[in-house]
Computed example of a mutant assay.
Amino acid sequence: MSRIAPTGRREARDGTSYVAYTRTFAAPIEDVWAAVTEPERLARWIGTWSGDPASGAVSFRMTAEGEDVAAETYRIEVCEPPRRLVTHSGGTGPEDPDGMVWQLELDLVESDGVTTLTFAQVMSDPSVAESVGPGWDYYLDRLVAAETGRDVAGVLWDDYYPGQAGFYRSAFS
């Protein structure tokens, strides 16, 4: 059993299945936007990107998984600072040899100084839900730790996986 309760939920958006998560921050929307878009801020909890976003794509590398992880190209589909970001990678190139498309959607809303982040990923292949689901719970909790001044090293992968796998497998089967 997981030591951390799963927070993802299955959502249908225009006939497409998503896994979605919500996190709240006692911070202005611009600050949370920076935490999920600026390379230096991303590096604290997940990875970093390089390149020119104005080109429509950036190279992203998940540094939180070690130094050997290859960078992937993420195409920027929608960028409406500080409220919405939609990106996708994979499915057609060497950056994802198993052919999985990673479409990520981030929506932010601020009310009374509290910003709510809704993070969602298209879940077109239910067989990966058991690892992707706990993965995003883990990374989003690392984001919360980084933004609240806690040590992200205290967020442990073993607290999420394999304990949450059954929940996400059931949610998407």
Rank of each mutant, 00 (worst) to 15 (best):
S50H: 02
G51Q: 01
D52N: 15
D52H: 11
D52I: 09
P53L: 01
P53R: 12
S55E: 11
S55G: 02
S55M: 10
G56P: 00
V58Y: 00
S59F: 06
F60L: 15
F60R: 05
F60K: 03
F60A: 15
M62G: 01
E65S: 14
E65W: 15
G66V: 14
G66K: 00
V69D: 04
V69R: 05
A71M: 03
A71S: 05
A71N: 00
A71P: 13
E72H: 10
T73Q: 05
T73G: 07
Y74A: 09
Y74Q: 06
Y74N: 11
R75P: 04
I76H: 12
E77Q: 11
E77D: 15
E77Y: 00
V78P: 10
V78N: 10
C79H: 07
P81L: 05
P81C: 07
R83C: 02
R84A: 01
L85E: 05
L85F: 05
L85R: 11
V86E: 02
V86D: 04
V86T: 10
T87A: 01
H88N: 12
H88I: 07
S89F: 02
G90N: 04
G90T: 14
T92A: 15
T92M: 06
G93W: 03
P94G: 01
E95Q: 08
D98Y: 08
D98M: 10
D98L: 06
